[in-house]
Design a protein around this nucleic acid. Structure first.
Lengths: 251, 251
DNA sequence: GGTTCAGTTATTGTATACAGAAACTTCCAT
DNA sequence: ATGGAAGTTTCTGTATACAATAACTGAACC
């Protein structure tokens, strides 16, 4: 039943996938909780078939896992899983940066990256950074990391980096959200910007090993901050990322 | 073949996925070729719904890609894509080895690995290695690499390593198959065994950086051999033909 | 002869019906 | 009251029907 004709261009499957992902990331569903098909059908408005396809895709994405007896449940991650996922992302981004440096990129290719950095600079200029500026930062940061991966010009590598960033807490901006409560937030942002600048310089100068190690270190900064954030705020429920953004005073 | 009535315990989806994967890996379907649902239904015996789910999973696995107008096609890889995938695997396996070393593993944990190595030693003892011994080697080698990834004790890392090994040409034994025609095949096997031994020693002695770099080098050996095999362009009967396409993919 | 448009075919995306299984409830017996 | 068993209920897995769209074929017109 076509109740709404919004977004007729996109398939029901994609729409269901987006809707369910938002539902998971917003924290409406707790880790370990079973996600019923009927419930998903009701939430998305699509039929069972596209919902099922969306669930399969989300499982491959790492947000869900199959229940042996049947169906899917929200995947739950230990603190170590989360930290390992960040290390993983750093490793993959390091590989991408090294490949970019070794293969060589033109100054023209670096231009959008530098532009992105400049915009971030504008944002972090204000010391007590506003909430709106913060979500802009998140978007720009994600964009920078995506562009960086693409510099490798290697579809397999880009693909894996994307996968690694799909987990909300492992995403390049995940730590930013988690750290928003930290007193030294501004200092960390500046440090991250330094990393960004260094990696671009390393790539430009074809210093592959340096580009790689700085990206690894960059991820470790994220891991450290996340750990600190987890320590200060005792609530450890998977860091519902978008929730942290929208409602900074949650819980 | 002859797995038509087997395993009624597993779901149709899984069976279809296995069957289709074999079909793709066997080279029956050329890269870029569209894989029709009806055709897949006929080949697997399952209905459209499980076939469709299997196709989605295989796409996430990297063997298929979606056609914008609808449906799926066999993914095609350029030579560089293949080499990059091997480098990627090496990077991930390096991470796994490093984590294992840093975290520390008991001698007991290493036992199955060493047992595996001993069995491989037995196989490579014969200089002109037989075909049967070769397929045993492939299985044992895959097992060793899988066990090694598990030493990291990190589900996210294990997961990604598995993914990276899913591509047939990037799998740890892919190069073995490709190199089977090479004159220096035996020498290469011995070299690979050296790598295997070294990485275990490094892990046992908690030398994380060494464990990591040796696994990277190990993958580069594979890449080099594959490149040599591609150059000579000898028989690729053992290697999944769909991988070794000569089409210089656009972009 | 080439190009375009229309009719036809085939294939995908979606919805739904059906069967089997797992979980929950209820009732009986110890 | 508690444990177990049977019935019920809900859910998933599978099959299939239907609709819309993309691809193909053929013919007519330029």
């Amino acid at each position: 039943m076509a109740e709404r004709e919004a977004d007729r261009s996109v398939s029901q499957t994609v729409r269901a996938q987006l809707a369910l992902r938002d539902l998971i990331l917003s924290g409406s569903l707790r880790p370990g909780e079973r996600v019923s098909e009927l419930q998903a059908v009701e939430a998305t408005g699509a039929s069972r078939t596209p919902v099922r396809m969306a669930l399969v895709r989300l499982e491959e994405e790492g947000l869900l896992e199959t229940i042996p007896s049947g169906g899917f449940m929200i995947k739950s991650f230990s603190e170590r899983d989360i930290l390992d996922s960040i290390e993983l992302r750093g490793t993959l981004e390091g590989l991408a940066a090294r490949l970019a440096a070794e293969r060589g990129v033109s100054v023209r290719d670096l231009e959008p990256l530098r532009e992105c950095l400049a915009q971030i600079d504008d944002l972090v200029a204000q010391d007590p950074i506003s909430i709106e500026a913060f979500s802009s930062y998140v978007a720009l940061n994600a964009r920078f990391h995506a562009l960086l991966a693409e510099l490798s010009r290697s579809p397999p590598v880009i693909r894996q980096v994307d996968r690694a960033c799909a987990l909300p807490f492992a995403s390049p901006s995940g730590f930013v959200m988690a750290q928003s409560a930290l007193p030294e937030a501004h200092h960390i942002l500046l440090l991250a910007q330094d990393h960004h600048r260094i990696v671009l310089d390393a790539i430009e100068n074809r210093e592959g090993a340096r580009a790689e190690s700085i990206m690894r270190e960059h991820a470790r900064l994220a891991a450290r901050n996340l750990r600190a954030a987890l320590k200060t705020r005792s609530h450890f429920d998977l860091v519902p990322a978008s929730a942290l953004i929208k409602t900074p005073s949650a819980s």
